[in-house]
């Protein structure tokens, strides 16, 4: 318990650093006023709007005001949406989670059989094929994969919807797009881990007892490999979020990715801040949970 509290305390400076950096970058990027006014607005009109929005104050004052409010849970108003920024971000969060969870499911569904299979058939043609495809999966830019999938499955074959969020069919292509890199990573990891486990004593004992290879693989070996699988997913969560952000653009998925890209283009400071901080908190929480889970499952790790 003290461990958890200590870890949580370490998060606070992290969040302050993150917020400062993001604030600085957005501040330096200029303000949203030019984008809010008609495109041929004069400099006088721009200055006036700036004053109204409080953007004429010095940087450090603006950041101070932001930080004070943020501590009270107020990330400020979105310039574009004229609403609480945090609310806008939380509204989009479920869509991104849906995509991420689906892509995790897709990647494990792909990775487990492939990883196990190539471990059993080690150094055969099957193994070579699976290993090289998994490297291929890592080498492809995911947005390009998404574009190719749409071209094939939606436009040419007309089997799946092109974009948007709605039915389970809408989820398939985005989930594959966002999940492929992770699937590749997991396959490779599972393969090497399974090879290691399969050569261990207790598996050999089980074999000598006459247990069928199916039982051995799925009951004993695979169960032992699940922990590293979960760890990899947790460690890769940040990459996965990044991948989801890009995938959302390809499939017009109404999640955080779309929101943040628009907010950056529109210089919508409050939304960018809230978005980045929510993602940061999420990544930290997932890593913390994975860490705890690891300790629960494997008590040999000490709470130091």
């Amino acid at each position: 318990m003290t461990y958890i509290i200590r870890r949580l305390f370490q998060v606070i400076p992290v969040l302050i650093i993150v917020s400062f950096l993001v604030f600085l970058f957005v501040y330096l990027s200029g303000d949203p006023v030019a984008l809010m006014l008609p495109e041929d607005a004069s400099q006088a009109e721009i200055e006036n709007m700036r004053k109204v929005l409080g953007l004429d104050k010095p940087f450090i004052v603006q950041y101070g005001i932001f930080l004070l409010n943020a501590v009270n849970g107020d990330f400020g108003q979105s310039f574009i949406y004229k609403q609480e920024a945090l609310g806008i971000v939380l509204e989009r969060l479920p869509a991104t989670f849906e995509l991420m969870i689906a892509s995790i499911i897709v990647s494990t569904i792909i990775a487990i059989p492939l990883g196990v299979w190539s471990a059993i058939r080690r150094n055969t043609f099957v193994d070579l094929f699976i290993s090289s495809s998994s490297i291929l999966g890592k080498a492809m830019p995911n947005f390009w994969l998404g574009m190719m999938l749409v071209l094939l499955f939606s436009v040419t074959l007309q089997l799946l919807p092109v974009s948007g969020k709605g039915t389970i069919y809408h989820l398939i292509l985005p989930a594959i797009t966002a999940g492929t890199a992770m699937a590749a990573q997991l396959t490779r990891m599972l393969r090497s881990h399974m090879i290691e486990v399969l050569s261990q004593d207790y598996i050999r004992t089980a074999r000598s007892k006459g247990l069928g290879s199916f039982v051995i693989i799925f009951k004993h070996a695979l169960r032992n490999s699940m922990l590293p699988v979960i760890t990899i997913i947790a460690l890769q969560i940040s990459t996965l979020v990044g991948g989801a952000l890009i995938t959302e653009t390809v499939f017009s998925w109404p999640g955080l990715g779309q929101l943040i890209i628009q907010a950056i283009h529109a210089r919508d400071m409050a939304v960018v801040q809230a978005c980045v901080l929510v993602i940061a908190v999420f990544v930290i929480v997932v890593n913390l949970l994975a860490d705890l889970l690891y300790r629960v499952v494997d008590p040999r790790i000490k709470y130091n």
Partner: peptide
């Protein structure tokens, strides 16, 4: 390491996006 932690918490593509904004 706190700085490192801060950056781990932000997906690198997101960080790049925010910086390139300015």
């Amino acid at each position: 390491m706190r700085i490192v932690d801060s950056q781990i918490a932000i997906p690198s593509i997101l960080l790049a996006l925010v910086i390139l904004g300015f």
